[in-house]
Nucleic acid binder design. Structure first.
Length: 274
DNA sequence: CACGAGACCTGTTCGC
DNA sequence: TGCGAACAGGTCTCGT
């Protein structure tokens, strides 16, 4: 499910609350339970469950596809991978299937990490920067400029699709937003990164930021049975639109496999450069 | 360094 | 209808 816009949406919900759900800010943890041990990367289950009670939630933030709760002593960091979700519910709610980790708060609410496929991961650390050390820039950061993207593209000799999915190159893009951004930029997913001109790089930079902002504006995308709330899936131009007409030119959208990932593009609008 | 295959998991959809 | 194969928003590790 979750790429940058979905994680940003969930972070905003946890930070600000909703009409029928309180904000987590200021809440104090009373108890923690790990239901699927492999979810927790560090520390041990015993230390995790022992260190959390008593800590207060100071803030909620996002870095790439990671979501973090700043607590009084540590940072509690989640990566939702393919099917993870974070839900705030009353503690008397019966446990839904696929809940992997629970954080109870004084006041009767709990945060539930639900993850059907068990790929999601959680860290409790006092050094979040170490965890994020290998991540590339934040695409929506004002310090990330078109020129930076151009230089990073020039420094590599890789196909655009796998490169944009590489979180050490740029943090936050996944399969949906990469396909959408490349289509908007008119660039073929197999184009080599160091063939792009400054103009191409600027177009790609603009497209990446536009599709991410569009995703955030729609509260992310909800596909299949995973996630809820967002409706960006109704605005896909190429992702999972195989055979449908390209919104620009009407040519049928094609699907190929690149780096073992389904890749959707318009052969007319996104030609390989000579 | 770049790339492909396989692993990790469960659930849905596709194709015969 | 039934049943196995293919596929799914991600990332890591290993081998070439």
């Amino acid at each position: 499910m979750p790429e940058l816009p979905e994680v940003e949406t969930i972070a905003a919900i946890l930070r600000n609350g909703t009409p029928d759900q309180p904000s987590l800010r200021g809440m104090v943890i009373s108890n923690a339970r790990v239901l699927w041990a492999r979810t927790l990367v560090t520390p041990s289950v015993a230390e995790f469950e022992q260190r959390l009670p008593g800590q207060l939630v100071k803030d909620i933030w996002r870095r790439g596809k990671h979501l973090a709760l700043s607590l009084s002593q540590h940072d509690l960091i989640f990566h939702l991978r393919m099917s993870g979700d974070l839900l705030v519910e009353r503690q008397d709610t019966p446990l839904a299937p696929h809940h992997r980790l629970l954080i109870d708060f004084t006041g009767g609410y709990r945060l539930a990490f639900n993850d059907t496929r068990k790929f999601g991961r959680v860290w409790l650390t006092s050094e979040p920067d170490k965890l994020f050390a290998s991540l590339g820039p934040e695409p929506l950061d004002e310090n990330f400029q078109a020129q930076d993207l151009y230089q990073r593209l020039q420094a590599r000799h890789r196909r655009l699709k796998p490169l944009l999915l590489d979180q050490s190159f740029l943090a936050g893009l996944g399969n949906i937003y990469t396909d959408e951004a490349l289509h908007k930029a008119g660039l073929h997913p197999l184009e080599m990164s160091d063939k792009l001109t400054e103009n191409h790089a600027e177009r790609l930079w603009r497209s990446i930021r536009q599709v991410l902002q569009e995703g955030i504006r729609h509260n992310g995308a909800s596909i299949d049975w995973v996630y809820r709330g967002g409706n960006f899936q109704n605005h896909f131009r190429v992702y999972r639109q195989t055979g449908k007409p390209c919104p620009n030119c009407g040519a049928p959208i094609q699907k190929i496999t690149v780096g073992q990932r389904g890749t959707h593009f318009c052969p007319q609008c996104q030609p390989l450069m000579p």
